[in-house]
Amino acid sequence: MLKIIGSVCVLFGCSALGFYFVSQMKKRLQELSFLRKLLFFMEGEIRHGLKSLPEIMIAMKQKCSGEWALFFQIVGRRMLEERNEPLAVIWKNAMLEALQVSSLSREQKKEWEELGNNLGYLDREMQLVLLQISQEHFGDFIEEERERYKKHARLYQTLGVMSGIFLVVILI
């Protein structure tokens, strides 16, 4: 009886691991698409509204939930109320504080951090070009992730279940 319960647990655990990897990939894809939309929003606010960055950050906070709402809240509040640090520092610290749970890869986080290094201290034209470049980079990330998802999603799920079965066979 114990063997059966143990086998079920191992099988369930390994399968869950496979499904978890797939869900993380899916979440990353969604997160990247969402960030790209935010970059479009930011571009629109600068191009047509000529709004200041603190205002844009607060507006972006309203559009998000979870860790990203927290990120924009920290950045917006520190720019509006504290004004003690350059934006690059505020941006980086907010990433450390709020985006620990984000499913973005290290490279994608680096790209997001790079955006914070250049925001604000450019004229309008350059600012818009910078945002368009970032949109393209995030577009590339989305394509890569999509490809990866297509290739690996089923593989991870199958591997999870198969490794569970393999372990059960070995252990029994």
Partner: peptide, 17 residues
């Protein structure tokens, strides 16, 4: 100087063209 300009322009130089 750059930091000062960031505070002067509310972190938004483009808005002060």
């Amino acid at each position: 100087l750059r930091e000062t300009m960031e505070y002067v322009s509310d972190y938004s130089m483009y808005a002060y063209e």
